[in-house]
Design a protein around this nucleic acid. Structure first.
Lengths: 257, 257
DNA sequence: AACTTGTTTTGATGTGCGTCAATACTCGCT
DNA sequence: AGCGAGTATTGACGCACATCAAAACAAGTT
């Protein structure tokens, strides 16, 4: 039943358990003062432990829209947490087609696909001016040995990524275009709530093309369906500003309840 | 380039790095004597360490076709390795649709989706009479603290699962029915090779319905396309016995090279 | 061997979404 | 304010795959 509610909400990105503190908008700010509060790290970490984590986190200056954090094939060194803005990760298939694997919003972690063979299986690019925290993997590994709760949390993040990917697989394999788009809207809404923002009114950081690519549709289909939802009075969409007018109906379309 | 080759092959299941030894057909046999040889555990593990692993692994008696190892929602306690037979994992969407997430062959690990919230996000069922090793997660966690290489290996397994899921996402989002089926055939072939069996002649453990479900198609489409491949002389398929007659052409259809 | 039950194949028809093409909007630049 | 390049919308049409339906096959049971 809890299953049900979360169901179509978390199709994207690592929807991490709302827990501890780390990372910030100002790129010099420490984890302990981070406005994202309980999104990044495990709640079980004590105050002095947070300092240790602070020490290994690299805080870069903001990344401009369109700039890459890493590219497919790059040596894997770090995982990343979004502080502000939005990131997409994508990979190129052998035949050269781009597939977007996820959108990552503030408080979410990405870059974990590179662990298995020490090279990134995807590329990561900023959808808008963004700030990220970089967490070197070897330091994290060492620190995990001393802080079991950190290790457990990290495992959970990866497991959650798997569970999310599998929801997306189901969405792509079984659902109509209407359902996919409704599910995406609900996912973004839920993640916005987690960040203490409005459930019904927010900015879409990605282009229509990105939405289409991510959902396995064409840009025309996405556009048409969004227009249809607008005409039906389910949403109000002007360019990238989305207002959900009837969230119950969005849930119905997505096929939950 | 290595990317390319592996590309459409590993769309399913955790295609683990061919490494160390553990697990067997006879359900009493220890990891060190396991015929699966280098598939399960990290190569870096020394002889006495393997004994430690041996001690925590539970070897059940064979599971009959159709019997479940765990169900969606069950408390997560263990991960599993296939010793013989074949397992599928699937999850039910909120609206009750079944989605197969992966097929697992001997030497492959499954059940890692339950770590994030201590409950399984999917169900696992035997496609034929199968034997599995069960590895309790808490014992594994403790042991990992002492054996860093074990921990690293486990992280790699999870990361690989993520990478595989993402290949499947790409397949479902971007590829035609022909391409999907060709990719599945290549994946099974590659995994068969890893187990030192024929690349071109093997048994399909799953039904047409399962193939269709997994690939986001209907059973009729799967059947038609397999018939077409047969008529074209690309494969020879009698019931569930598959012979690949022209693997180059299968690669071409799958869209690699 | 005949009967049952489930699985797979094959055919005829329909439709959701892709493709192609043209128009409209947005935003940065000068 | 006006221009230009990217991005989004809308329409007309076609096709790949789904749906519906029936026949063929497989495997176990008596």
């Amino acid at each position: 039943m809890t299953q049900q509610q979360d169901g179509a909400m978390n199709i994207l990105a690592s929807d991490l358990p709302a827990k501890n503190s780390h990372c910030h908008h100002d790129h010099r700010v420490s984890c302990s003062n981070c406005r994202l509060g309980s999104l990044c790290l495990p709640i079980a970490v004590s105050t002095e432990d947070i300092e240790q984590i602070d020490n290994i986190v690299l805080r870069s200056r903001p990344i401009d829209k369109g700039h890459h954090l890493f590219n497919q094939g790059d040596t894997f060194k770090s995982i990343f947490a979004v502080r502000s803005g939005a990131i997409k990760t994508y990979s190129l298939s052998p035949s050269g087609k781009e597939q977007i694997n996820g959108f990552y919003l503030p408080g979410e972690i990405f870059g974990m696909d590179g662990i298995s063979d020490f090279s990134h299986a995807s590329s990561a690019v900023a959808l808008e001016r963004s700030a990220v925290c970089e967490i070197p993997y070897d330091s994290l590994g060492k620190l995990s040995n001393e802080l079991p709760s950190l290790q457990r949390h990290f495992m959970q993040l990866m497991s959650r990524e798997i569970a999310n990917d599998q929801k997306l697989i189901s969405l792509l394999g079984k659902n109509s275009a209407d359902e996919r788009i409704a599910a995406l809207i609900l996912s973004l809404s839920a993640r916005n709530v987690r960040r203490k923002y409005s459930a019904t009114e927010f900015h879409l950081p990605m282009s229509r093309t990105d939405i289409a690519n991510f959902l396995g549709l064409t840009i025309e289909t996405v556009s048409r369906i969004l227009s249809k939802f607008s005409k039906q009075g389910v949403i109000d969409l002007r360019n990238k500003e989305l207002k959900i007018l009837n969230i119950e109906q969005v849930r119905q379309i997505a096929g939950i309840e």
